[in-house]
């Protein structure tokens, strides 16, 4: 039956969100009904199930029959789109980084590796912005090609082989699509606000707005940007794969610890505009921020360690061993 779960999971990926659960439940019931009938004619359950799935067809094709809308990009066009997107999203930020580094080296200041590194970190928002803009252009370009040029691409699609269906992820490797999309959108908004609209974080009084944060915060921006981009990158990987892998889980652990460190760094730095704080008697804000950020940093790091430990335990298969040991201790 594991093969059926693997098959249904792949179909589920392409189904409309609101009907997903009902369609999968119905499909499961119908495919099992088919299996039961074949079993009455004899044969092995695994072989019969293999045949039921093979005859029912490739998961994406099956799911598309349940959709009234057609996909934006055809199956033939998708590999080209992904290839160009990958190239553009690597080369555009790399070109920006190279240009900024050359600019820094030509500035006439004596060469210092740390300064070069800091300069590179400050380039992150521009690299991010360039990559998103370039990806957007590629997407629009491919959309126009698909809609108006309608290229006749012949793709050798291999015959559907149920045995090649990906495994069902273990519980710790399951991913929420909503959570991934939320992280990506939130990352873009935060990066934009912090880097391009920092004046919005201000005290609004009597029609005036006075920035709440000082240069100390601006100096920490590169490390904050790195943390946010790191999180967005992992969320993108999860949204595409629809599951976590051991590598992305490890990266997620590293990112969470890193963001905890960034929070601690923010808590211990002088980032508030003292003129505003003292002028408006708002000393409570930095105090509350230090307490909140310190607690947040501690909980973030501890949470990351606990979550990752669970993954390691599940991966090593020692879950049973630990449960048995606890049971023995209880006795």
């Amino acid at each position: 039956m594991e093969l059926l779960d693997r098959y249904l999971l792949q179909i589920e990926k392409f189904l409309p969100l609101k009907d997903r659960e009902d369609i999968i439940q119905e499909l499961k019931s119908l495919l099992l009904e088919d299996l039961d009938n074949r079993m009455m004619e004899g044969g092995n359950q695994d072989d019969n199930l293999y045949q039921v799935i093979k005859e029912y067809g490739e998961p994406r094709e099956v799911a598309l029959r349940y959709r009234s809308d057609s996909p934006i990009f055809s199956r033939e066009m998708e590999p080209f789109l992904y290839m160009v997107l990958k190239i553009v999203m690597i080369t555009t930020p790399a070109a920006i980084l190279l240009a900024k580094s050359i600019d820094f080296l030509n500035s006439g200041d004596p060469f210092n590796f740390i300064n070069l590194l800091i300069n590179m970190l400050y380039s992150i928002p521009d690299m991010f912005s360039a990559a998103v803009t370039a990806a957007g252009f590629v997407f629009i370009l491919f959309y126009l090609i698909e809609k108006y040029a309608k290229p006749n691409i012949k793709l050798d699609v291999p015959e559907f082989e149920p045995k090649h269906l990906p495994q069902v992820p273990r519980k710790v490797y399951k991913v929420s699509l909503f959570e991934s999309i939320f992280t990506i959108v939130a990352s873009i908004v935060i990066i934009y606000l912090l880097n391009y609209q920092p004046g919005l974080i201000a005290i609004y009084y009597d029609g005036d707005s006075i920035p709440l944060l000082n240069n100390g915060f601006t100096k920490l921006l590169p490390v904050i940007n790195t943390s946010i981009l790191f999180a967005a990158g992992i969320a993108i990987a999860h949204a595409i794969k629809r599951r976590k892998t051991f590598i992305t889980t490890t990266l997620e652990f590293m990112q969470t610890v890193y963001s905890g460190v960034v929070l601690a760094l923010l808590a211990s730095s002088d980032i508030f505009n003292t003129v505003v704080i003292e002028g408006y008697e708002l000393e409570i804000i930095p105090r509350l921020f230090v307490i909140g950020a310190s607690i947040g940093a501690t909980l973030t790091i501890l949470g990351a360690i606990v979550t990752y430990a669970k993954v390691i335990i599940a991966r090593s298969g020692s879950e049973e061993f630990i449960k048995n040991t606890i049971n023995k201790l209880d006795k």
């Binding site: 009907d19 369609i23 119905e26 499909l27 119908l30 088919d34 029912y56 067809g57 099956v62 029959r65 349940y66 009234s68």
Partner: peptide, 11 residues
Amino acid sequence: DQNTLYPLLRR
């Protein structure tokens, strides 16, 4: 085919 009928029923 089953995979023609089932989506048709839902529609």
